[in-house]
């Protein structure tokens, strides 16, 4: 298989331009998404309806935002196992601010996001300064956040019944008020906005550049006079910000902070990132890929459910899809 687009771009020297590997994986992921959508649409008339598609998008939002954040650390060649439970802790703190302390909703939301950012900062510090491997440092943060969420909430859900506006963050529809009938929940809007911010951050700013440099060759980057420690901390904090945002979204969607939820979300987020073509060894990846990866996971779950495949089996299928996606990536690498 030749990895060139026939008759497409050629550089100045007339050599065919090879598709950047990330772009190819994205194309692959995007094609898989289209194939899945077509397949499920043909299999069931209930699949390709407006309300079902909106349902899919809504169920993608929380995991999607988590996956956006995870993309950053994974491109550095690191990992963040704590995003699931930090998300929960952020949700709980949002509940504490708004319901227990009566803080205005916008400030409560900000508090929730900052909780995530703070956890990311701590992970970043222990990785960059204490030189603890990312896997271990974030595993510890995962436990810490899980425990704190239970302690702070007294193991009981915190409801937002006194602040009905909070629910609107995820489930209201700003778009509907602009274009009547176009009832897309805000959570979906937030997800796509976050994706755009993430994509710009990664592709256009200095953080993004260092992100790729770190993942490509950390020691060479350090020897280029880059303050690697600082940028690692910044990147883990960015992941924390997205995680905090995911926590707020989740709390709003459930109209409550559920302290027992969250465990395992980090793995789904990582799965979405990997399916989207970001390499776990670092240096390669895109936000668009992650969005597609997250959508593939939701479409798969939703479609299988509509086809009445039992939930247990849905999980099995997702597992195989992850194997397949990563194997496709390895095959492509080997061919080079």
């Amino acid at each position: 298989m030749k990895l060139t687009l026939a008759g497409s771009k050629a550089d100045k020297a007339g050599n065919p331009v090879q598709l950047k590997s990330g772009a190819l994986q994205q194309l692959l992921a995007f094609t898989s998404l289209v194939v899945l959508v077509v397949f499920f649409s043909l299999s069931s008339s209930n699949f390709f309806g407006f309300s079902n598609i909106v349902g899919i998008l809504l169920s993608t939002a929380v995991i999607g935002v988590l996956a956006l954040g995870s993309t950053f650390v994974i491109i550095t060649g690191g990992i963040d196992l704590s995003v699931g439970t930090v998300m929960t802790l952020s949700a709980v703190m949002t509940g504490v601010f708004i319901t227990f302390w009566g803080v205005p909703v916008p400030l409560g939301i900000l508090g929730g996001i900052l909780t995530g950012a703070f956890c990311g900062l701590l992970s970043g510090l222990s990785i960059a300064k204490l030189k603890i491997p990312p896997f271990i440092a974030t595993l510890a943060m995962m436990m810490i956040a899980k425990g704190l969420a239970l302690v702070i909430s007294g193991t009981k859900p915190i409801y937002f019944n006194d602040s009905p506006v909070f629910r609107e963050i995820a489930l209201g529809s700003l778009l509907n008020s602009i274009i009547p009938g176009f009832k897309i929940p805000n959570a979906v809007l937030v997800f796509f906005l976050a994706a755009i911010v993430g994509a710009v951050l990664l592709a256009k700013t200095i953080v993004g550049r260092y992100n790729f440099a770190l993942g490509s060759n950390e020691e060479a980057t350090r020897l280029s006079g880059v303050n690697v420690d600082k940028w690692k901390i910044v990147i883990y904090t960015i992941t924390g910000v997205f995680t905090g945002l995911a926590g707020v979204l989740m709390a709003s969607r459930l109209n409550s902070a559920q302290p027992a939820l969250g465990m395992g979300y980090e793995l789904e987020a990582i799965a979405a990132v990997v399916i989207g073509g970001t390499s776990l060894s670092g240096g390669k990846g895109t936000i668009v890929g992650t969005v597609i990866g997250a959508l593939i996971m939701s479409v798969l779950t939703n479609g299988l459910r509509i086809m009445s495949v039992p939930q247990e089996w849905q999980t099995v299928v997702v597992g195989f899809v992850i194997l397949l996606a990563v194997y496709a990536d390895i095959l492509r690498r080997r061919k080079k």
């Binding site: 200095i206 550049r209 260092y210 790729f212 440099a213 490509s216 060759n217 020691e219 060479a220 980057t221 020897l223 280029s224 006079g225 880059v226 240096g283 390669k284």
Partner: peptide, 22 residues
């Protein structure tokens, strides 16, 4: 191992030490 990022392009390798200025 220590000199350049071999998987990155020429311009990235030339610029990486000067991102602050760019």
């Amino acid at each position: 191992q220590f000199g350049c990022m071999v998987d990155m392009d020429v311009k990235t390798n030339v610029a990486v030490a000067s991102y602050g200025a760019f």
